[in-house]
Design a protein around this nucleic acid. Sequence first.
DNA 1: GTGGCGATTTAGCCTAAACTAATTATCATC
DNA 2: GATGATAATTAGTTTAGGCTAAATCGCCAC
Lengths: 237, 237
Amino acid sequence: MTPSQTAVRPDDAPEPTYTGPVEDYLKTIYELERATGTATTTDIAHRLAIAPASVTGMVRRLADQRLLKHEPYRGVRLTQAGQRVALRTLRRHRVIETFLARVLGYPWDAVHDEAERLEHAASDELVDRMATALDEPTVDPHGAPIPSRDGTVNDRRYASIADLPLGQRARLVCVSDDDPARLRYLAELGLTPGALVVVLARAPFEGPLSIRVGDPGRAADHAIGPALARALLVEPS
Amino acid sequence: MTPSQTAVRPDDAPEPTYTGPVEDYLKTIYELERATGTATTTDIAHRLAIAPASVTGMVRRLADQRLLKHEPYRGVRLTQAGQRVALRTLRRHRVIETFLARVLGYPWDAVHDEAERLEHAASDELVDRMATALDEPTVDPHGAPIPSRDGTVNDRRYASIADLPLGQRARLVCVSDDDPARLRYLAELGLTPGALVVVLARAPFEGPLSIRVGDPGRAADHAIGPALARALLVEPS
DNA sequence: GTGGCGATTTAGCCTAAACTAATTATCATC
DNA sequence: GATGATAATTAGTTTAGGCTAAATCGCCAC
Ligand SMILES: [Mn+2]
Ligand SMILES: [Mn+2]
Ligand SMILES: [Mn+2]
Ligand SMILES: [Mn+2]
């Protein structure tokens, strides 16, 4: 667990405020860049559920504000300034999710949608107070790392359970959080962060995986599809 | 303390969602109507810190949506539907203020600005969870009544300390919440909801009031201006 | 009743952020 | 090296919610 610097703040200028849509674009681009190297127009459009032409328009505005660089027909890359805004928004989102789950008893499949709106309305002051009340949490309810106040984040890459060698014991680290129904299903299977998992068998041709979930004695076996498997990140143990 | 019906919900239709600006207009109009009978263009503009011409435009849109009736050059009145939205927003605002103060330790002069934004992003679900966690509070940190889930509110009128007879003992019920500096000053003077107050003297020609604040033994005397006095609501006791 | 003045509305403009339809660029394939 | 298929951009439109400047209304004083 080596937290590594991914963005620095160059000075103490009072960070300007951005609109909700702008924060969501930057957050999405940050995650796409991290996942696939560069963020393309279509990917961004798909994630935000808007038309590709709309993305082109917003990307031009964000480039004007030096929040990203746009290579037409190629993709976009966040600047340091853009990354800073993205990480601040990601911190808000994840601190809020954690607060809703731990303090207000929200089920883990309901926190994401609520946080998706609150992240744009909550002040840094509020988010910091929540973080303090939670004793400075480092991961959100789905296992995603929470960036620190000063914009550093644990950006360690984990393997997906889809790539885990047969028989290798591992801990579930993180699950993707955007589909409530999927999250409810995962909880039913005991697939929450920290759970012990082993892959028993993997069927060929994009077939299902047989997995054993849970600590010895209370383990249960399940079969999951390859798409679901790719959304589960694990750490061998 | 007789809670009286100020709005009813006619059916169980899923209340549509409104934009932040719309909610703020309706909330402001509700309060102006309550305070002065009718809400005028200039009053609304002044409260929301926007140009009167902008208010005329928005009022037309709100009238189109049957949220209020507009008599040109005369003023506006909320419809039942408009009142319902106003009270729901007011409930959110006040529950959020109370939560910030009691659970997260916010000072009472900082909760209003934060709630002014969060009230538009928080779901009813979240607000109800906050209210439950607070054991269904009935007043916010400034003493204003919190509308219930079903849209009823204690709309009892209180006298201002400016109108209190000399020597009459009274309890401070509610202070206006929009000026942080004023709130900090009131706290310094011990003028928080529940405080015992007596008017000792009142200078003529809009002069200052001499008041005694606090329970016998720990009481202190202060002089306050008439404008400040009008912002302090009391209940004789 | 007429003037004047403050309150209000109208007219015209702007920005953000979305859309659809049409055009253009890139790239793999023949 | 020409050709589609796919991705991306451009062009033009829409809606919400602001703005300023100009016109108009309501009402009080004379
Ligand atoms: Mn989330
Ligand atoms: Mn969001
Ligand atoms: Mn308030
Ligand atoms: Mn507000």
